[in-house]
Write a protein that binds this DNA or RNA. Structure first.
Lengths: 247, 247
DNA sequence: CGAGCGCTTGAGTTCCCTCAATGGTAGTGG
DNA sequence: CCACTACCATTGAGGGAACTCAAGCGCTCG
């Protein structure tokens, strides 16, 4: 079940069979299903376990009193929901399910046991948290400096590349289960403007967005146009990536 | 020398005298002075030690190829420069000195020794990293959702409150060694518009900015006007804060 | 089959940007 | 000690990117 987390952690260095197995076991202890658009946890809550996305898309978001909302991260399969939340007093943001989502819920004791049994896993998880922080910095740059066209292009590049590392792309296509309203809340634009910018991306031949599927026709060109530089994802050098069918 | 780091970590829970002393000792091993506006480390570099700001202001920033620049964090005394950089391949952003800055440089081996001698310090440092990540999320909200007035007000509130926790405020005033250009790169506005927005903040009586000093006349009111909610700083409940003279 | 939601389009507006110019101040060097 | 330079803050004018409001269309689903 936790194949995506394992896959992700192995980018940082191979795991031993024991580490893989312990990780796998601990994610099978308890699972939880969330319906699309329901909240997984809310700002102010105190989490009782560590949750990992097994399947589906979720997002971290923060709301302002007057209803404005900013999505600050997307959680794809293998991503951990409560980085540090257990160690801080309470959640400073909410997490919502974008699609129907399956979570593994790991009790704190089981997690403690896991990392004390396998100290190298601790390091891999820390690394994962640092990568998440790097992505957060890049998102700040995205909304702070880039034009609407670049912002949207950058977001699509990031999501595609992250899906690719998970083996969840099909050629130059992947799922994109976001509404234009959610995209708007992600890149700090209005829905109307997202719609027009998306048309611009389509009309210039960079992408096709049909239903819930994204196709990037010229990834290299889009990366250039959107000033996307994948260094912030801290992936291994190119060429290691594989698709679903190949593994 | 590392009084500010110690002070910050003690917000998360008191340290033993031994922990304090070891922390202090390790920050005295080697120090480095940086002139204002020089870079401390650049994107792509691989850090050779852990640096802690002892004195002065620094900032994390990312540059785009065409010269646009986004400041993604300010590093105040007690802040750690290379959260996770040692564990990732290379720096995904640069760090520059805003003012003249003094750094403690802790060799990796000394840092490893420190946290293995005092495991609770590891937890405090991890907590600190998680708080930094929380601030980063809030900055994404700031540039993504808030108006120019709110953005600038929010930034000033954050900097003032953070300086306050360090005991570096004088009543309702504190240092603000930023040029309007740097503020512009922080909140994603043009210099001209920062200037006008700052005037708006002055004219409405919220703040005075004279030379390199910021005075916030009505902090509560500004917090409300800027939609500032200090929960994301994960400070202890209010009332614990003290000023320089009091401790 | 109406209701709700998401996508799309048009029209008008506003917030923020760029360009340009000025004055003040600090640092440099002759 | 005073040019000379550089940088920063400030102001005006004009333009454009993105916003709001409003309406219509096509799904899907109870």
């Amino acid at each position: 079940m936790s194949q995506y987390l394992i896959r992700k952690l192995e980018y940082y260095g191979p795991l031993t069979p024991e580490e893989r197995q312990s990780l796998d076991a601990v994610t099978r202890l308890r699972t939880r299903r969330i319906r699309a658009r329901d909240d997984i946890i809310q700002e102010g809550d105190r989490p009782q376990s560590i949750s990992i996305v097994l399947d589906g898309w979720a997002c971290r978001y923060k709301s302002l009193e007057d209803g404005r909302r900013q999505i600050v991260a997307y959680l794809l399969p293998g991503d951990i929901c409560d980085l540090g939340a257990s160690i801080l007093r309470e959640m400073d943001h909410s997490i919502g399910a974008v699609t129907a989502t399956t979570l593994a819920e790991i009790p704190f004791e089981a997690a403690d046991q896991l990392v004390s049994d396998h100290p190298r896993l601790m390091q891999a998880l820390y690394r994962d948290a640092m990568t998440a922080a790097s992505i957060q910095r890049e998102w700040t740059v995205n909304v702070g400096q880039r034009t609407a066209f670049e912002r949207l292009g950058h977001l699509l590049c990031e999501l595609f590349v992250r899906m690719q590392t998970l083996g969840l792309t099909r050629g130059s296509s992947c799922d994109l289960p976001l509404t234009q309203g959610e995209i708007a809340d992600t890149i700090g634009l209005s829905v109307v403007h997202v719609n027009r910018t998306l048309q611009e991306l389509r009309n210039t031949g960079y992408v096709t967005v049909a239903g819930r599927e994204l196709t990037i026709h010229r990834l290299d060109a889009l990366e250039r146009a959107a000033l996307f530089n994948r260094n912030y994802l801290h992936l291994p050098r190119r060429g290691h990536l594989s698709e679903a069918g190949e593994s």
